[in-house]
Nucleic acid binder design. Structure first.
Lengths: 324, 324
DNA sequence: TTGTACGCGTTATCAA
DNA sequence: TTGATAACGCGTACAA
């Protein structure tokens, strides 16, 4: 392992001169500098990240923490994060699982973007108190060192509900997510508000968990009731896919008796027949925004929380009912 | 930032005693140790990764390098890597893009698992020469510090071809991948061998690039020729999906005139109608094996290259032709 | 138990 | 000006 010491010896200068030369400081003449650079190259010198980090108290690495690695879901999100960070000379690493939490307090990374339910609010606040910089994508957390970049869940849920209502559905099912996730709670708040505004509607809430299985279960419940045309809002696309599967297994086609709207517009939905109506938002933008905000708080700027806007994708999974 | 120095001061002992106590060394009495631990906890002490790493010359972090973050493909693979590493006290970080390459030579990570075409063979050999530990999943690379854990691509391609031939197909199309990827080259070698053994078959090779678009293009070519029943082997599932899409847009149903086999068994395939016949292998096992091999070479063991076995999933995308 | 050298680079201070 | 000396960041581990 060649270090600046080796270069210094070979060049006949001190290690500080080597360091200055490698960092392009004007404190060394261009001749000395050129000579040092040449030797460094010849020796295949590569600086030691730990040493630099120890002295500079920064790693220029940002960690993105995810609940798990599954999911076609994260591709664009991570790409958005990475491109912004790389442009500013930072690297992105992606982590998952309890064990990896240590990277933040041990100062291996300069900041973290959290979309990871394995962090509790208390844990994150503790890190924030220690001065670590955070951006959260999956919860509301108020702390000067924490910025929020959240989906406009309520607007999305409103769009979905209004779409079903506007296409003439009078009997509605809503398949919720886990009560302990921010996204599900927010979406349900908007759902309930919509239902309060429409007392004429018949609505049933089915508890789901954001996984395909609970979508299948919801399908079973809905089909067994067999009460005629109904509109279903699954609080995420994955459950909607489960519902497609269950319906297919029973010979029922989505978009006929049952209208269905999802949330997230994951890549998979485009392969469903008929296409799934859903709530769309730019995952790339979400990731890019998260990185931008994080770099700002690392830079000491005061920043406001940000919101990612959503839109409705209409599709044939929703059938227009004749007004009755 | 509280360091062992602060703890030492508070406890009235030396920093070395603190270090020993924190590391559970028997060199300190249990009373002193207990006192030190208590103070450390009270001060919310967390060790500095850079300092430890600088001294110990290891980070206990392994990097997985991917060509990009897209792809439902990587979930189980990364999960397999992570679980093995975590059990052995290592953390996994996932990286992508040229900029992140530095993490390896700068010794931020103790080893790397490569499934990333942005690394050239030369670059990897250079790292291996410097003593960095590598496992490659996407190429053959012979070096004492490099282990290979490769898919049995040839066996998979053979299974796919034999399936099409065995179900009575006499006209075959093969949609290749990029010529510069290991997987495509290996699969094509097996394809050509199979074709050599069956001179009675009519076979056409269509160049693809492993993306959906080239599957659509292949679909266009095949349907325009319109030469009756044919068997198609797409060298990966993503192109097969493109072919489904194109066929659907032309009102052609896969599994009737056209039989189709893919490769990879990505999650998406189960949503296709009819289900796609494809080559399956355990992504989890692949990742787990990669981690195990990496830990072995880090531990100084001599290890042989490993192979991940594959199997055929039969499905209705392949139609049995009557023997003629 | 403790003092201290060490890992490796950065940078302030000081000398030529 | 140009460059060297040395302190420093923080934890580890050997010698005393």
């Amino acid at each position: 392992m060649v270090s600046i010491k080796d270069i210094a010896k070979q060049a006949g200068v001190s290690i500080s001169t080597v360091s200055y030369a490698l960092n392009g400081s004007p404190k060394v003449t261009s001749e000395t500098s050129a000579k040092i650079l040449a030797i460094a190259k010849e020796l295949n010198y590569i600086p030691n990240a730990a040493a630099r980090q120890l002295k500079k108290q920064e790693s220029r690495i940002i960690g993105a923490f995810l609940t798990d690695f599954t999911g076609a879901f994260y591709g664009d999100l991570l790409q958005g994060m990475k491109e912004v960070l790389n442009r500013k000379g930072y690297d992105l690493i992606v982590c998952s699982g309890m064990q990896s939490h240590r990277l933040l307090p041990e100062r291996m990374i300069d900041g973290a973007i959290i979309l990871d339910s394995t962090f509790s609010d208390e844990e994150l606040l503790d890190y924030a108190d220690r001065g670590h910089k955070l951006v959260v994508l999956d919860r509301e957390l108020n702390h000067p060192a924490v910025n929020q970049v959240l989906l406009d869940n309520k607007a999305g849920a409103n769009l979905a509900m209004d779409y079903l209502i506007g296409t003439g559905h009078r009997k509605l099912y809503v398949v919720s997510g886990p009560a302990d996730t921010f996204d599900s709670r927010q979406r349900m708040i908007a759902v309930r508000q919509t239902l309060d505004r429409h007392p004429e509607l018949e609505a049933i809430i089915i508890e789901g968990d954001f996984n395909k299985g609970s979508g299948e279960e919801a399908g079973r419940i809905i089909l067994e009731r067999n009460e005629g045309p109904a509109g279903v809002f699954c609080l995420n696309d994955e459950m909607a896919i489960g519902l497609y599967n269950y319906a297919a297994s029973k010979g029922v086609r989505i978009g006929e008796e049952i209208s269905l709207v999802g949330f997230d517009n994951i890549d998979l939905t485009q392969y469903l027949e008929p296409r799934l109506a859903t709530i769309d938002y730019s995952k790339y933008r979400w990731g890019a925004m998260a990185s931008e905000q994080l770099l700002r708080i690392i830079g000491g700027e005061e920043v406001e929380h940000e919101r990612i806007y959503v839109s409705l994708i209409e599709a044939d999974s929703v059938q227009r009912r004749s007004a009755d």
